[in-house]
Amino acid sequence: MTDRRGVVAKRAEDLMPGVPYVRGWNRARQSASALADQLVLLGLDSDFPGLVADVNVVGDGLVQLGTVRPEAAELLATLIAAGLRAELHGTTAETPATARREAPAA
């Protein structure tokens, strides 16, 4: 697994001695759990059933979203954009119910 900038190494399948896999995986687990909590609040937990913590070959934690429907990815992008707009303008973001209702239909 490598992003277009080459930042993320491929996921660890064979573990090597001396690499702090547990530390990276634990951080990923905490982050995946925090994201899962927010998805539950938004009613999106069933849209991300493949959300899991993982680790790459150098011990960096990874959070995998899994395979999602295009509508779920679009809704997540809409919610992130709304949060960024709210942060930039010092206002509160739209409510999750409003965001979900206004998301484009498939």
Rank of each mutant, 00 (worst) to 15 (best):
E74M: 10
S46R: 11
L79Q: 02
V40R: 12
L84W: 03
D3R: 01
G61L: 01
E102N: 15
L75E: 00
D37F: 07
R85E: 12
T67V: 13
R5N: 14
E13R: 14
L41K: 11
W25A: 05
L65I: 07
V22F: 15
S33A: 14
V19P: 06
A36N: 02
T2S: 13
A53W: 04
L65C: 05
L44P: 00
A9N: 08
A105N: 14
E74T: 02
T95Y: 08
T78D: 11
R4V: 14
D47H: 09
P49Q: 01
P49G: 08
P49A: 08
G61I: 04
A106D: 12
E13Q: 15
S46Q: 13
G83W: 01
D3M: 05
V52W: 06
L35M: 12
S31A: 11
L35R: 02
T98W: 10
R23N: 14
R101P: 03
V22S: 15
A97V: 14
N26I: 11
A103G: 03
A28E: 06
E74C: 06
D47W: 03
G83N: 05
D37V: 08
L84G: 08
V52Q: 09
G83M: 02
R11T: 00
V63Q: 01
L44Y: 01
A97G: 11
G43M: 09
P70W: 02
G43K: 04
Q38S: 03
G66E: 07
R29D: 12
V68C: 15
R27T: 04
G50Y: 02
